[in-house]
Nucleic acid binder design. Structure first.
Lengths: 194, 194
DNA sequence: GTCTATACCACGATAGAC
DNA sequence: GTCTATCGTGGTATAGAC
């Protein structure tokens, strides 16, 4: 298992690149800066990757991979009643955003400004992840657990927005991810009104 | 009243810059591209602005200004019961995001990767806008209309996330903003569960 | 208020030694 | 697998004519 400080070679480059891209965006990160932090010269990056775009694609891929793994882990737990099933996947998505490196967060924040060819390569992969959520919400709706009348796509997008926007303000070092997941789940399920 | 196609000089530069920054991020937009679309040379931009950062600051300022004006218009309407009061301000915020140029959306999406000095100049201004929301939510909570136990800051951030993340998917040309505002308000107030 | 010309630097990327 | 050296391009910004 790799961690940021112990990874080597290709993975170490991706760790550094993901953190920087999350912070400054794709165009805000020169290859020279990635290389500096890794401890090599920019030209040496080209032994591991053919281009900057290829690094970005690898970062995004790994970000989606982290999300899918978190989903799979969550899906392993025994079946719950509907709300708990949602809660466990919300917690998993937040885990991908905050507990497994900067990859998922980098993907979520930087994808919108990525070059068209990078986007084209990533879209099919992220679609597969989104389809899992659509399916989960469809099952909840079929069981009568979601308000009728709201299109499924809308509630999925609202949930994604609510989860992903935590990147802007949640501090994983100070806050509690379980509590955050509970707030988001409750907000989605019951709302904040009373 | 200025519109994108008829504005001139300084405002025309800002209109173009805001649209491009929304699309590609700050570092993804060369001054030459702004100048091209405006119909001048890049060097001529320096007659109107001292630096690229100054353009970005002006774009963000206007984005916040649009939000505040939308808020003020909403606050002009006679007092409602609590949920309707919230709904009217949600609608106003979405109006700022989609109905008054790309400034507010550019601010929301590009601020996170802005250079530190740009951020420092903008933060106090955006804080004032956020304080309006905090105050509104505090009044709702004081009236017993928000679920007790959820910190006010959390519900404000959840609401912001839900509204601002619509930038990623809502198509103002095809969708209905009133309906969107209703979905978001209902989602915040009552949730999506049943 | 916009132009031409240009300075200066940083960018991504390649070649080839070690 | 990393280095030095370098190429070509394009970035922000300035000077000065018109």
């Amino acid at each position: 298992m790799s961690s940021v400080s112990t990874s080597t070679g290709r993975q170490r480059i991706l760790d550094v690149a993901a953190a920087l891209v999350l912070d400054r965006g794709i165009d805000g990160v020169p290859l020279r800066q990635i290389a500096d932090i890794v401890g090599m010269k920019a030209s040496s990056l080209y032994y591991h990757f053919a281009s900057k775009n290829e690094i970005v694609v690898a970062v995004f891929r790994q970000g989606i991979d982290v999300m899918e793994r978190a989903w799979d882990d969550a899906a392993d737990t025994p079946p719950h009643h509907p709300r708990a099933r949602l809660a466990i996947h919300v917690r998993a998505h937040l885990s991908a955003l905050f507990e497994n490196g900067p990859f998922t967060a980098a993907h979520v924040t930087a994808f919108r400004t990525a070059p068209p060819d990078v986007r084209a390569e990533i879209i099919p992969i992220r679609d597969a992840y989104e389809a899992r959520w659509t399916e989960l919400l469809a099952e909840l709706a079929a069981g009568g657990h979601l308000r009728p009348g709201t299109p499924l796509g809308l509630s999925r997008l609202a949930l994604f927005g609510s989860m992903n926007s935590t990147i802007e303000w949640f501090d994983a070092d100070r806050g509690n991810l379980d509590e955050l997941a509970e707030v988001i789940t409750t907000g989605f399920w019951d709302g904040f009104g009373s």
